[in-house]
Design a protein around this nucleic acid. Structure first.
Lengths: 198, 198
DNA sequence: TGGTATCGATACTTGAGGTAGCGAAACTGG
DNA sequence: CCAGTTTCGCTACCTCAAGTATCGATACCA
């Protein structure tokens, strides 16, 4: 609960009494990504993020219950909706893979993603937030677009995201174009899409 | 440096002066896995592991410079050499995939693996240890057995390990047999192995 | 003008990684 | 048996980061 973030002021109706919140969410998100990019996830403390955003630490904790929730919201903002405008199944899957690979390559995004995911390993509550708020929307969208059963879509996500994050985590560098292409060549045929390659 | 661990007492020659170390490495490894299995990686503090092993915390820090190094040695001990006795390329790859999947399913092993990997995301030094001591031996063995160039072997590892760990991290449960089979069906043909499936 | 909720600032609590220093114990060589 | 060396368990400590509490000031509404 308490997640009314990412709502534009115009969308909110019937303003409650009291001093309204200042519109610093976007600033905090930007500060989060740049700080994580600069120092890594663990060393990007909430103190530092607050300082980079020009905001008090207490303000951040008033809006997000934990560092993990902040980063999840930050990633939701950074990812946005998945573009699913391909014509056939193959193009659709390939574009989804290339889209997530590109997002993970953006400065700060991959580190933040790998970082929260890391914390989630030993934090069931954060794992729940991650699954429900970040994974679920994309799972639903892919299910709709591909017509694959849920289990297959989850497997697809595990393979694509897992591979990209493992490479980033082991090397510190996002996967290069050629390897992303190999990923597409490997995954798409398995899911019944024709890549048109030899 | 300082990594003479995992050496059997009989292997060491010309005993140095002073009190010899007690043979508690195996006990500490077992305590590490069971504690991680019980509480998760982050809540499995060195204090708790030491208590579970019936050993002082300082003893652990005398043998391993950090929690990460302890867990890496623990995983080395848990994994052991990869069994590469398949006849053809396909059997070889499939057995390697099923072997690592089975290991990750063992209580504590998967959590410990995902946990150190997590820490490595924002700790370059730990990443170095992980790559050199844990990944490199298996990379070399696979390179030898499969004859694939290094880049392809690293890609293979990213896909297999990344997928398995992502599933474990998101759900808290290791991947089931059927999904491991799907992983084999997807990966092996991509690397030029014949699965013999339809 | 009063009610309400946010803001920044400071101080604090809690927990975990890691270190320092102690006396006691266990081994070696003389 | 004894001196030298090293590990042992123990206690106390340091550092750093997540998260909490409180307070006066500020911005909005009715």
């Amino acid at each position: 609960m308490g997640y009314r973030v990412l709502m534009t002021p115009a969308t909110a109706s019937a303003r409650p009494p009291g001093r309204p919140r200042t519109g610093v969410n976007a600033v905090v998100f930007a500060a989060t990504l740049s700080t994580v990019h600069e120092l890594g996830y663990a060393r990007a403390t909430v103190d530092r993020i607050a300082a980079a955003a020009g905001v008090a630490k207490t303000t951040i904790y008033r809006r997000w219950p934990s560092k993990g929730d902040l980063v999840v919201d930050c990633l939701l903002d950074a990812f946005g909706p998945v573009p699913l405008e391909g014509t056939g199944r193959a193009e659709l899957m390939a574009s989804a893979i290339r889209w997530i690979a590109a997002k993970i390559s953006e400065p700060g995004v991959g580190d933040a993603f790998a970082g929260v995911f890391s914390d989630a390993v030993s934090d069931p509550a954060l794992r729940q937030v991650l699954a429900a708020r970040l994974q679920e929307p994309y799972r639903a969208a892919l299910h709709e677009a591909l017509g694959e059963p849920d289990g297959r879509v989850l497997f697809f996500i595990d393979v694509v995201v897992g591979t990209l994050l493992h490479r980033l985590g082991m090397t510190g560098e996002p996967m290069v174009e050629a390897d992303v292409a190999a990923l597409v060549e490997m995954v798409v045929p398995h899911f019944g899409g024709d890549t048109g390659a030899t």
